[in-house]
Amino acid sequence: MSTRYVHTNIVARDWRGLASFYIRLFDCRPVPPERDLSGDWLDAATALAGAHITGLHLRLPGHGDTGPTLEIFSYDALGDRLEVNANTPGFAHIAFLVDDVAAKAREMLDAGGSAVGELASREVPGVGKLTFRYMRDPEGNMIEIQSWG
């Protein structure tokens, strides 16, 4: 059986605002159609009564027209959010390769993101110099921005 990575889902308070952030800052591209999902099939799949999802898929940069997407969805009824830190078990962050980590961090701050830590650099033996920083998008999801020299 063949396997291919397809998407990562982000549940957002404001899917349009969050999608706009990823489009502007990380060159993600919308993959129509916008989703408006509900029904018994969705209730069964999510184990939620009366589930209603709206949102959009965004093609991630650098992988062509069939590459993986960010699936940014909002539910009418949202659960409580627990803050994820770099050492929280489970999915912690997504990462983007950028030309200039410091400049991208400033863009993220200007667009409503926030910083988790400081800019860091390290020589990785046999690989090269890694420069990176952990940030958060406007809804608190962690993003690693990195550059290799």
Rank of each mutant, 00 (worst) to 15 (best):
Phe91Lys: 00
Gly39Leu: 13
Thr54Trp: 02
Gly17Lys: 05
Arg106Gln: 15
Phe73Tyr: 12
Pro32His: 08
Gly17Phe: 01
Leu60Asn: 08
Asp65Trp: 00
Gly112Lys: 13
Gly67Lys: 06
Pro30Lys: 02
Ser121Met: 15
His63Ala: 03
Arg35Gly: 02
Ala49Thr: 14
Lys104Glu: 12
Cys28Asp: 00
Ala105Cys: 09
His93Asp: 08
Phe132Ala: 14
Val101Ile: 06
Phe26Gln: 09
Arg106Thr: 15
Leu48Asp: 05
Ala115Gly: 11
Lys129Asp: 09
Ser147Ile: 00
Leu78Asn: 05
Glu34Val: 05
Gly17Ala: 12
Leu70Phe: 13
Leu18Met: 07
Gly64Val: 01
Thr46Lys: 08
Ser121Ala: 15
Leu58Trp: 02
Gly117Glu: 14
Arg106Asp: 15
Val124Ser: 12
Arg4Met: 11
Ile53Tyr: 01
Leu18Lys: 05
Gly149Ile: 05
Ala77Gly: 01
Arg59Cys: 00
Gly50Val: 10
Tyr22Val: 08
Ser20Leu: 07
Gly79Asn: 05
Glu139Asp: 03
Asp65Arg: 04
Ser121Leu: 13
Ala77His: 08
Ala95Phe: 08
Val6Gly: 00
Ala120Gly: 08
Arg29Thr: 14
His57Pro: 00
Arg4Phe: 05
Ser121Thr: 15
Thr46Cys: 14
Leu25Asn: 15
Ser74Leu: 00
Met142Val: 04
Asp100Asn: 15
Asp80Arg: 06
Ala111Asn: 14
Val84Asn: 06
Asp100Val: 03
Asp99Pro: 04
Leu42His: 13
Arg133Glu: 14
Trp148Cys: 05
Leu25Trp: 09
Met142Pro: 01
Leu18Trp: 04
Asn87Lys: 02
Pro61Thr: 02
Ala92Ile: 03
Ser2Pro: 02
Ala49Ile: 11
Trp41Gly: 06
Glu118Ile: 10
Gly62Ile: 04
Asn85Tyr: 10
Ala77Lys: 09
Arg136Pro: 02
Phe26Ile: 12
Ala111Thr: 11
Ile143Phe: 02
Gly113Glu: 09
Gly149Pro: 03
Leu109Ala: 13
Arg106Ile: 11
Arg35Glu: 11
Val6Ser: 09
Asp110Lys: 15
Asn87Val: 07
Glu144Cys: 04
Arg133Ala: 15
Arg13Gly: 04
Ala95Gly: 15
His93Ala: 10
His57Leu: 08
Ala51His: 01
Asp137Gln: 06
Trp15Ser: 00
Glu107Met: 13
Phe132Arg: 09
Asn85Ser: 11
Gly90Asp: 06
Leu58His: 03
Arg29Leu: 12
Pro89Leu: 00
Gly112Met: 10
Asp110Val: 06
His52Phe: 04
His57Asn: 06
Ala12Trp: 02
Cys28Pro: 01
Ser114Asn: 01
Cys28Trp: 00
Leu109His: 08
Asp65Ser: 02
Trp148His: 05
Gly79His: 04
